[in-house]
Amino acid sequence: MSATIQFTDVRRVFRGRGGAEHAAVDGVDLLVDSSTRLGIVGESGSGKSTVVRMMLGLDHPTAGSVEFDGVPLASMSAPALRAFRRQVQLVAQDTSSSFDPRRTLRDALRKPCHNLLELDTAAADAAIDRTLEALSLDPALAARKPHQVSGGQRQRFSIARALVVEPTVIVCDEAVSALDVSVQGSVLNLLKEHCENHDAGLVFVSHGLPATAFISEELVVMYQGRVVERGPVGRVLFETEHPYTQTLVDAYRVTEGVPS
């Protein structure tokens, strides 16, 4: 078994103001590994980001378990967690806050090289430059602070930060949602190519069906914290079972002109 993340009956409850409990994620089973590109789609508030945080060990289930190669992320030792992070990386939504405003982009990219690959600074910089070039980014830009590059460039840096350790699974949470449409296409293609060339798995999470359908092989549809539909992209799009999915697909047909 290698690089498999398994969600078993995962539930994550948040306590709101006044003590009212609210299940952001409820009874979710998922299997993620390097063999597929999995899309998770659902409207805003359906629990996608909560799933992503638990998938990366940044948050833990209230009930059920999230395991990496059979070990629960919640009880991993520090070295095991580093080994996990070496394999599973995150590309977060581009907000101006995805990089520390006080530090250069290169500082941010050196971090995974130092912490996870144990490279010295020279070797880290070489790896960073290689990764940036593969993403058609000028390595000179890395000397800048995050607010000194464009949103599209910053998002590529965010991808570079994930790819620099050559992970076996890349998790993207709304990775292109904040970018304008022309930039979205190129970022999606970059991700897809990287996964194909490196045999890496992808978890692509977004509220938008078009981008998710484009890049994924398998689709999971989330609604109010639950998985309401899953299957190969073609089946979910054309033999929809759940009414919520149908509304997503209808909107997709209108915008993309997919034949019914």
Partner: peptide, 14 residues
Amino acid sequence: GEAYLDAARVSGDS
């Protein structure tokens, strides 16, 4: 709540 903290955690910071 800033995203760069989660990013740093994923990059292996304690």
